[in-house]
Amino acid sequence: MDLASLLQISLYLSMLTFYLGVLIYALPIPITGLKKWGPRLISDAFYVAALSLAFYTILNAASYIASALGANWIAYYGFITGQLTGQLSMIFGLTSITKLVNPRFAPIVSKIVSTLVGKLMVAVYVTTFMYVLGLVIQKSYAALAALGIALMAIPFRIARGAGAFLLSFALVFYVALPLYPHFFSFIILPPQNNGVQMLETVTYIGHSIPLQSSTGSNLVEMQIPVAPGNPPDPIYKIISFIARLVYAVVIGAALYLTLLISISVGLARALGGFGRLRVI
């Protein structure tokens, strides 16, 4: 079913709603509760007909607002794929370390590495989800919006709430999801390293771990700090960086999606007429 069919169905459903409203108006049954549905259905029908006929205007308005706010899907995908590449590279690098390290320290290093890789995998899942969500929204936001209007057009307000949510979800995410890189850079990564210090309580180990290649030659020797307060070591820096990255990716995505869903719910209430901001 294509977009035009969905819009046609919603238009005819709105007409059906209108004539059902008229039918209830003309019923010879003087029950106030029943009669109230007459004008209600008639106004619903006009509202949904206006929405379905002005569908492309609404989409143009959404594109206009998105462009005015600086939303760019190419930049969004670039940001997400950049994140994903970084995370996968880190996973690859960390798993390579276990093969390069001296066999004496292999168990402890592999334990640390597996923990870090596990955390990084969470970030990979979240980033992949954001990528897929972007693809779904960009490719099918018009279809989702049309489906929302078609659901709103079902007589007697059966699926009005769901339809209004679907419509507002499609519009809000189409406008605001490409702005995620801006949100990420402004909120999660403030300038001058004033970001969240999430790994202050890292466990320190008083050993030096010589990192060796498979041939046995020392590549680099890393000194792990023995007490808090010392200048950060390379391993501490790596662990701290990975932990911050994972928290930033997960919390950033969760915050942004929560924000967008909240806006969608508010818009759905306004469009569907369930809140105080009632359009019709």
Partner: peptide, 23 residues
């Protein structure tokens, strides 16, 4: 319904083109 269609078509033709994003 015809009037709604007429107003919607008027709105769709009068809407300006969105600005091009500047990276």
């Amino acid at each position: 319904f015809w009037l709604i269609y007429y107003i919607a078509s008027l709105l769709s033709t009068s809407f300006p083109q969105p600005p091009k994003p500047q990276l």
